Simulated scan of single mutants.
Amino acid sequence: MSSMLTVCNTGSTPTFVTKNRAEVLDLTLCTNHMSHSVTNWKVHKDTSFSDHRLITFQVDREYSTHPSHYRNVRNATWDKYVVHLDKSLSEIPHKLPTTYSVVVERAISSAFECSCRLVMRSSTRRQSWWSAELTSLRKLAKRSHKKALRSKSASDWSASKEATRAYKAKIRSSKRASWRKFCSEVNNLPAAMRLHRVLKGSKSHQIGSLRKPNGEFTSTPGEALNVLFDAHFPDDVNISHRHQNTDPSLVLEDDDLETRIVTEDRVREAIKSFDPYKSAGLDKIYPILLQRGIDILVPHLKNLYSSSLKMGHVPSRWNEAKVVFPSKPEKEDYTSAKSPT
C-alpha cells in the first residue's frame, strides 16, 4: 500500500518451469489507479524459449494509442489536394484570428483527407533479419521443449536446451549481420542522424509518478500535470483562460507595423524552410501540405498573422502543444517536476 502498487497475477499457474522446478516467481505490478484497467492476465504454456513462461494481459483504455487506419502523406494526390484546398478557401470572410485559424486548419485537413486514401495499419511487420532457417530452428526448439515437458527425462531436457541454444545463437548472428548491412548502407545525413540517435540511446519519457513538494507521489496523470504546471509556471494564474480574450497591452498602436513585419514573401520563405515530411503537430498538418498549397495559403496566413499581431490576440489553437520528455545522459531519476524539459 505504501508504494501504491497492485499485484495483477491471478491463479496459481507456474511462471517459472525447469526440469525439476515449477514455481510462481514472476509478478506483474501496476499502480493502484490502473489496477481496474488490467484484465485477462494469463500465463501461456507454449514454449517461450526461456525458463520463464510468457505472460500477457490487456489494458482497457478509453482511447487507442495506435490507430488501426492512417494516411501516408507521401502517397497523396497533390493535384487533387490543391484543387480541393482552393475551393475550400475561395470565399472566406476576414474574421477574428481564432475563427480564421480554425477555418484554414479545417480546409487543409479536409483537402488532405480527400487527396490521400485511408489505409489499414499492418499488425505484423517482417523483420529483415528473419530467415527460413530460423523458422526451422524455432519449430525444432518448440518440439523438443514439449517432448521434455511430457517425458521429464534428463536426456530430453538436454536436447531441448541444446535446440533452444542453437536457435538463440542463430538469432544473434542474424541480427548482427543485418545490423552490419544497415550501417554499411548509410549514405546520407538523415539516415546517419537516425543511426546516431539509436546508438546514443535517446528516448522520450512519458509522464509517470512525480514527487510533490510535500514528498508524496502523484497517483493520476492529471495530478502529475498539475505538479508540472505549478513547478514551471508558479506565478501564472488562470493561464488556461488568458487566450480567450484580447490583451489590450499587446494591441499595436502603429497601424502599419504589422504590415512591415508580416509580408507574403516572409511567410513564403518560412514555409519553404521546413523539412517537407517533418512530424506533424496536434493539428496533424505536415509541412508538405503547406508547401504544396503555398500559392493558395500564403495570402490567408499573411492575413491571419497580421490580424493576430495587430489585435494582440493569439488563436486558442496556437496555445496547444505536445510536450516531450527527453532523457538525459546518466540520469535515471525522473520523479522531480524540474526534470522534464
Rank of each mutant, 00 (worst) to 15 (best):
A166D: 13
V186T: 01
S153L: 11
S178N: 09
E162I: 11
H196F: 05
S173P: 01
L149E: 07
R172I: 11
R180M: 07
N188C: 12
P190N: 04
A169F: 09
R197N: 08
R180F: 07
N187L: 11
K170F: 02
A191M: 06
V198Y: 09
W179E: 10
S174E: 03
K175I: 03
T164H: 07
S178H: 04
K161F: 08
K175V: 03
W179H: 09
K181F: 10
V198D: 08
R180Q: 10
W179G: 06
G201C: 10
S153N: 07
E185C: 06
D156V: 04
K203S: 15
R197A: 13
H196S: 08
W179I: 10
F182D: 02
Y167R: 02
R176L: 12
P190V: 02
N187R: 12
M193F: 07
C183R: 04
K161Q: 07
S158N: 12
V186I: 14
L195P: 01
S151I: 13
S153C: 07
S155A: 14
S153A: 08
D156Y: 05
R197H: 12
N188M: 03
L149F: 07
R197Y: 05
Y167F: 13
K175G: 00
A191F: 01
G201T: 09
W179C: 10
G201V: 08
R180G: 06
T164Y: 08
V198G: 04
K200Q: 14
S173K: 12
R150L: 15
K170Q: 08
V186M: 03
I171Q: 12
N188K: 05
V186Y: 00
S151F: 11
H196L: 06
R176H: 14
E185F: 00
A166R: 13
D156G: 07
K181C: 12
F182G: 00
Y167D: 00
S204T: 14
R176D: 13
R176M: 13
D156W: 05
K200D: 13
K200V: 10
A177D: 06
S160V: 03
L149N: 06
K161T: 07
S160W: 07
P190F: 01
K161S: 08
N188A: 05
H196G: 01
R150K: 15
K152H: 11
K161W: 04
S151E: 15
K175P: 00
P190I: 02
A169M: 09
C183A: 06
K200L: 14
K152P: 03
K161P: 00
A154H: 04
K168F: 07
V198H: 07
S153F: 05
R180S: 09
L149I: 11
S202W: 06
W157Q: 06
K175A: 02
K161Y: 08
K181T: 15
K175F: 00
R172S: 13
K175W: 01
S202K: 11
K203R: 15
K203M: 12
I171M: 09
S184A: 05
G201Y: 04
H205C: 14
S204C: 15
A166L: 12
K203E: 12
W179M: 09
R165V: 14
R194N: 03
